[in-house]
Computed example of a mutant assay.
Amino acid sequence: MSDAELAERPSLADFSQNEHAFPRIVMMGLRRGGKSSICQVVFHSMQPLDTLYIESTTTPTTSVFSSFIDFAVVELPGQINYTEAMIDADRIFANCGALIYVIDSQDEYTNSLANLHTIILHAINANPTIDIEIFIHKVDGLSDDFRLDVQRDITQRVTDELLDDGILNIAIAFHLTSIFDHSIYEAFSRVVQKLIPQLATLENLLNVLCQHSGIEKAFLFDIGSKIFVATDSSPMDIPTYEICTDFIDITVDLNSLYTVDRRKPNSAGQAGQAGQGVKDEHRQPARPIGSTSRLSNGVILYLQQMVKGLALVCLMRKESMPKIALVEYNIDFFRDALEQLWLLG
């Protein structure tokens, strides 16, 4: 996401020295599980293959991100044994919105599940309202059938161990993830959405927009990370999500190629040379990002930039194009409502 700040904390003793007023996501897991790779790919636009050269995290690291909501992602090193005394449990989890535990699905995960169980016990004791998200990671190396088997096995083990301890009605979400496809973006989107107090209002606004504009599906994306902040209530599938994220990349890349000449030529001769020798101080970025594209199957992709680095991406049928003026009129109202919602939040 845009405006990311990276700050390394030397030890857990300093963990709560600089508390933030916005939500915090804590990422945990055993060493080499893939925590750093996830953060670099999702929030810092690193190519997945380049993550092979990332060194293991040795100190707690906090990344602060600014979008529709501001939040921090705290990555804790896997080599620290959090099961010993857990004297920092309150410090780690008390003001934590979500706990993400990363499990390497291609490795023997017995030790990882034991570590997870102990962490969950301390987390819910320190913060009963915490959202617990399990990323079953690196599933790109597994067959489709085996992925589901691993997910069922991990889900069953985690649930059974909690039941044995008498812990009921605890909400735990399990996600199959990989940095080599869009699954990691979808999983992180689901985590971030749970931290947005205005999520229900955003979804309702998108439903109303779709209903009155002939839009089949609408997403509200963060442009930088391609996490979707909200979507309407119609069913979503991964291919649709992938098409939308690819469309964002193409639109951003093309938009960066163009600038607007703000120089006012005094004569026809000057105007004729405007595109040839324009100085940098006369060249400014193009207007807010917007794009429309027609796919081979007749689906129309429509993108408009919104407030705080967000983009509205819509899928429409070609029958909606004659009414594009009405669609844009409704989107202007949606933008105003979004800005008011953001200011109130």
Score class of each variant (00 low, 15 high):
T62G: 09
G78L: 01
S105F: 07
L176E: 00
V278L: 03
R31T: 13
P77E: 07
Y109A: 09
D165Q: 14
P235T: 07
T155K: 03
I134R: 10
V208P: 02
Y82G: 06
E339V: 04
R190L: 10
I215A: 02
F71P: 04
S105L: 12
L343K: 10
H122D: 13
D249M: 07
H182T: 08
P128R: 04
K226S: 10
V73G: 03
Q270S: 00
I248L: 02
P60S: 11
I324R: 12
Y185N: 15
A89E: 11
T83F: 09
E328N: 14
L116C: 08
R190P: 07
V64K: 03
L326M: 12
S296P: 01
W342I: 12
E328T: 14
I69N: 00
I170L: 15
L142N: 04
I172H: 00
V208S: 03
L220R: 03
I124G: 01
A271N: 15
C210S: 03
V208E: 03
P23V: 01
D237W: 07
M321G: 01
S11Y: 11
R283C: 05
F146C: 11
V327S: 09
A337T: 03
L163T: 06
D165E: 08
T51H: 02
D261Q: 05
S189M: 10
D237Q: 06
S16E: 12
D164V: 09
L202V: 12
S2Q: 03
Q211R: 13
Q304I: 12
T240E: 06
C314W: 05
D222K: 02
C210I: 04
I130Q: 00
E242N: 08
G166T: 06
D70L: 00
P10E: 10
P239Y: 09
Y258W: 15
G33D: 00
P265A: 05
E203I: 12
L199F: 12
P10T: 10
L162G: 07
T59M: 13
V150G: 07
R32V: 11
A230L: 06
S291E: 05
S267G: 07
A271I: 10
P48V: 06
A171M: 14
S183L: 02
I289K: 10
A325H: 13
A274S: 12
K217E: 03
L254A: 04
D222H: 00
I87W: 11
L162Q: 15
L113W: 05
D50A: 13
S11L: 05
T58R: 15
L326D: 13
